[in-house]
C-alpha cells in the first residue's frame, strides 16, 4: 500500500467532456476497457482519439483495445493544490502515442522518467471514469 493510496480523498477528477467523436472511448472506459484509435490506411495509432487519422487524413480508423502499458515520458508534481500534491505527466504507450494523464497509487517522489506504468480507471465527478496510470 503506497503513501498516496493511504491518504484520504485527494484531487477529484472532473467529468470529462464527452463528444460524439469520443463517446465510444468513454463507454468502454465505463467497462474498464482502454481504447485507442488506429488507422487502417497507414497503420498508425494516434492519441487523443479522432474520427479520422491525423497522419494521413483517412476516415478508415478503428477502435482498438490496448493493455494500456507504457513508460513515463515526463511528469511534474503539482505541490500547490488544496487537496494535496498530484502528478501530471505523459505516458508513451507501447503502441506509440503519448498520452497526457495523472500518475496515481504511488509515492510521487519515487517516480522516474522511463518507469513502466499501466492504466487503471478512476471515478470522476459525475462523468465516466478517466484513465490514469500507476507503476506497473
Amino acid at each position: 500500500m503506497s503513501e498516496a493510496e493511504a491518504k484520504p480523498a485527494g484531487r477529484v477528477i472532473p467529468a470529462p467532456a464527452v463528444t460524439v467523436e469520443s463517446q465510444p472511448f468513454w463507454d468502454a472506459a465505463a467497462e474498464g476497457r482502454f481504447l485507442i484509435k488506429r488507422c487502417t490506411a497507414c497503420g498508425k495509432a494516434h492519441w487523443y482519439p479522432r474520427a479520422f487519422c491525423p497522419f494521413c487524413a483517412s476516415d478508415d480508423t478503428v477502435w482498438e483495445e490496448s493493455p494500456g502499458e507504457g513508460e513515463i515520458y515526463t511528469f511534474s508534481i503539482m505541490r500547490r493544490s488544496p487537496t494535496g500534491p498530484y502528478v501530471i505527466g505523459y505516458v508513451t504507450l507501447d503502441e506509440g502515442p503519448a498520452v497526457l494523464t495523472n500518475f496515481v497509487d504511488c509515492d510521487p517522489d519515487s517516480l522516474r522518467i522511463g518507469q513502466r506504468v499501466k492504466v487503471r480507471f478512476q471515478p470522476t465527478d459525475g462523468g465516466p471514469p478517466a484513465p490514469v496510470f500507476c507503476p506497473a
Binding site: 484531487r11 470529462p16 467532456a17 493544490s81 497526457l100 495523472n102 470522476t124 478517466a130
Partner: peptide
C-alpha cells in the same frame, strides 16, 4: 478537452 483538461494541468 475531454482527454486533457481533466488532469489538473
Amino acid at each position: 478537452a475531454g482527454f486533457e483538461n481533466i488532469y489538473g494541468g
